[in-house]
Design a protein around this nucleic acid. Structure first.
Lengths: 166, 166
DNA sequence: CTTGGAAAGTCAACAAGGCTGACATAAAAT
DNA sequence: ATTTTATGTCAGCCTTGTTGACTTTCCAAG
């Protein structure tokens, strides 16, 4: 109980209003976050679910379907629908595992890598602009709060994605 | 061009890897952000869309349908489906405008206020925990980056929502 | 070697919540 | 008097999530 009603700046900002404002920030920002890729995808036969699959296959080449399922947090039926079209259309390659032939290892084919790059470029451009506008200290705080907001399992996945330069 | 390739800590962190990590943080954190209210709503006849409507009606009592549409960024048909059930079930009251009788002004009825509070309590609890874990400085950065990530119109809406104590 | 169970895939059906288009009504504005 | 605005509603479609049932493949333990 070191920080109960003492009102160090540790607690002062935790009013309901402040928390609601944070909630609204998440809501509005997430819309912006998805807006650019969504615009690119509309008209194509793909949607946000395809984008997510491409993103994580790009990030973890050779990942298995099961691993991808657990990262994305959807059912295999839901992912399969998305993955099937990506494979059929030649954006993703599915290779039978060498050690365990039940597993499928997923890689981006050139077409998939190209679409992923287009989507990612757009999304990173917005993220870069936001980072620049807010500054380096803000970015650190941004990441800290988001990480603390994740469920434990999501945080595990998040942390295990490599980052070359923190 | 004061900060081009100079590598002050202004730009060093803007590698693609860092930006991707930010993108992933948004993805995983948003899942956590919606998880608790979603759990409360499952089994009820309501979903995330109902939650959003309740939230913003609570925040702006007496708001019109058109204003709510513009905040939520959906079509009137989509909102109407949600709003109709909330009104029929007695969670939301729709009052014909006094000045302009075409408008409907929306308020939470007691039942609606109670559900909104349950949902908000859960969501605020997670936000509070994340804020506490990350600390006050991080919170400021979090909000700055999110605000910079919004589309201009969303930012307008965001900023016009009152906050008693920044 | 057989068998249990994990990994993957598929089919069917359904729900939430987006969307468009068309149309109706009331009231305000011109 | 006419047009525009705010709202509501019907019908139909799409994406992306869900459950449940079932099959095939194949590793690994008995």
């Amino acid at each position: 109980m070191t920080t109960e009603a003492g009102g160090s700046e540790n607690l002062l900002f935790l009013t309901d209003e402040q928390l609601r404002k944070g909630i609204e920030a998440m809501f509005f920002a997430y819309r912006g976050f998805t807006a650019d890729p969504d615009r690119i995808l509309e008209g194509m036969d793909y949607g946000r679910a395809h984008h997510r699959a491409l993103h994580f296959i790009h990030r973890s080449p050779g990942t298995t379907v099961n691993n991808l399922l657990s990262i994305l947090g959807v059912t295999k039926q839901s992912l399969n629908r998305v993955l099937r079209t990506l494979i059929e259309d030649g954006l993703v390659e599915s290779k039978v595992g060498r050690a365990d032939k039940r597993e499928r290892h997923l890689h981006l084919a050139p077409k998939g890598a190209e679409l992923e790059r287009r989507l990612s470029d757009a999304q990173r451009a917005r993220m870069r602009a936001a980072y620049r506008a807010a500054g380096p200290a803000a970015v650190q705080g941004f990441r800290q709060v988001l990480e603390a907001m994740m469920d434990a399992e999501a945080r595990r996945h998040y942390q295990s994605l490599k980052e070359t330069n923190t």
